[in-house]
Amino acid sequence: MATDSDVLYPPRPEPDALTQFFWDGVNEHKLLIQRCSNGHYIHWPKIVCRFCLSTDLAPAEVSGRGQVATFTQPVQPFHPYFQQHPGYVLAVIELVEQPHLTLVSNVVDVAAEDVRVGMPVEVTFREVAPGFTLPLFRPAATGS
């Protein structure tokens, strides 16, 4: 049975040793992505760079700027929280730092019908519940 907390909050991440830095960064309003010693970014966090097999990886702060690679509007989500938020925009965001460097997130502060593939966006850190912050994306400020 769904509990109140299921309805009120999105599923909370359970960071592990590999991913703790990402969520710590989010809580400090920084977008941190793993980068290897040869300069390749990879996301989601792994133990090895898939481009050069370097195991010398460290979190690096990125600009938070990117574009909407693609998106969808789930109408029948499974989770009770998202059932309370019909019309939310589930998107794949490609960051400017590297081709195909993508995150799954939501596009906010814009009507869903105005979201476009290729739309420039920037990260915005939103507290979706007390003590629970997520990196979401909004249309980029003009000129950014």
Binding site: S5, Y9, P11, R12, P13, D16, L90, N106
Partner: peptide
């Protein structure tokens, strides 16, 4: 109510 592994990068966003 909580998600680990790959899902921590997808499920919180619906």
């Amino acid at each position: 109510a909580t998600v680990g592994g790959d899902a921590q990068f997808t499920s919180p966003f619906g």
